[in-house]
């Protein structure tokens, strides 16, 4: 899975925001705010990956256990799917 073309992540102040560009602006207006973990996972998903890839990246980045990483990855991926941001 991968972030759909036309969604980009930017940081503004201490905030991480996802907005649409190009043709995607016709379908998606507004913004999605992410916390720092969300932004980290979004960056992983800018290239093709799977949940296993995200979980490994989370463990490497934050030094957390597999269970915690799995919960974080699953929850966030499901939210991105619901928001229509993810190509599965």
């Amino acid at each position: 899975m991968k972030i759909k073309e036309g969604f980009v992540l930017h940081s503004v102040g201490d905030e991480n925001v996802v907005v649409a560009i190009g043709k995607m602006t016709k379908k998606f207006r507004g913004m999605i705010r992410l916390n720092s973990t969300g932004a980290f996972i979004f960056r992983q998903l800018e290239k093709e990956t799977d949940e296993k890839g995200i979980i490994d990246a989370l463990i490497a980045e934050y030094g957390i256990d597999e269970q915690t990483a799995t919960t974080a990855a699953t929850t966030f991926v499901s939210q991105l799917k619901d928001a229509g941001v993810l190509d599965i």
């Binding site: 980009v8 930017h10 503004v12 102040g13 201490d14 905030e15 925001v17 907005v19 560009i21 190009g22 602006t25 207006r29 507004g30 913004m31 705010r33």
Partner: peptide, 23 residues
Amino acid sequence: TSRDAVGQIFHQVLLPQDGADMA
């Protein structure tokens, strides 16, 4: 807070469509 400011400003702007302009 930065969070308040970003939330409010976003509602008061015209977001660009082009990727380079957005950046």
